[in-house]
Design a protein around this nucleic acid. Structure first.
Lengths: 147, 147
DNA sequence: TTCACGTATTCACTTATGTGCATATAATAG
DNA sequence: CTATTATATGCACATAAGTGAATACGTGAA
């Protein structure tokens, strides 16, 4: 019983919900630094959130040297499945920025692997590009909203 | 987004999960005192838990004089539906005692309505009966487990 | 071996959340 | 009108949970 309560609790946080959604959207393992960059949350908090999710059985990890790859855990119960469905079926608009950043971040991978780690200048540069783009979009949307 | 986080949070508590399961099992409105007796939790805590669930949109209320009847809110989203499915599909064994007490409590209704309110002697008497029954069952089960 | 790096954890702090007890509010009965 | 009743809420407190900054741990590279 408490395991189920724990699963609800583990998802009752916006950052952790976003992490799960990103893992669902990516359909592949993600490492801490990729999630960190996509969500723009400090690495230690991502690490902690992932620990909570792992303890609750929502995600699992695979170590490869110093790298740790996280993925959605195979559901052991219909309960777990329903929770994943709940998050997976939320409107994509709620996660637009995060998903966009994740895609960009994943595009930096080489041979399907994260090579950039923390404080990547490549990432900062890529981020500047989409930020400029988003500001343009934002301005256009504001102009339209005023009509 | 925060409404969905709120829904997860509202269900991330054992008492509130049980409340929802009871409402699902009963398939009818329940008042605070019925839930209180079934879960053996103080009335003020049940009232507070119900408020949290109502605020989150999980349950809704219908007032009838001084009586307030709570029921599962009609799902406004597949998210909400999936959460209800998750709880509704949990094994019944997790809620055996609570469901049993609820059935007993509901059997005290007259004309389909709760008439006993708080501190009902009828309820205390009924409770003693099933407690004696359960102790017998418990003893039998322990005897079997030792074989 | 030392240094760099990805991730995990500690420390200190703030905020959130749960409970018991007492009280308040609104509706009903006498 | 007063007393009773079902439910809601305030107060005080303890515990849980979240964060930033700093540090620790384990692995890999030089």
């Amino acid at each position: 019983m408490n395991e189920f309560v724990e699963q609800f609790k583990s998802l009752g946080d916006a950052t952790r919900m976003k992490i799960i959604r990103l893992l669902c959207e990516a359909r592949k393992d993600l490492c801490v630094c990729e999630i960190m960059d996509a969500l723009e949350v400090s690495h230690c908090n991502i690490s902690r959130h992932l620990k909570i999710l792992k303890t609750a059985g929502i995600v699992e990890e695979r170590k490869e040297g110093r790298w740790v790859h996280f993925s959605i855990a195979n559901p052991e119960s219909t309960f777990h499945k329903n929770l994943l469905l709940a998050i997976g079926n939320l409107p994509a608009e709620l996660f637009t920025a995060e998903i966009e950043r994740l895609k960009l971040r994943l595009s930096l991978r080489e041979d399907g692997k994260c090579v950039d780690g923390l404080k990547s200048e490549k990432w900062m540069a890529a981020l500047k590009l989409i930020r400029a783009e988003n500001i343009n979009r934002y301005d256009k949307r504001r102009m339209q909203d005023r009509r």
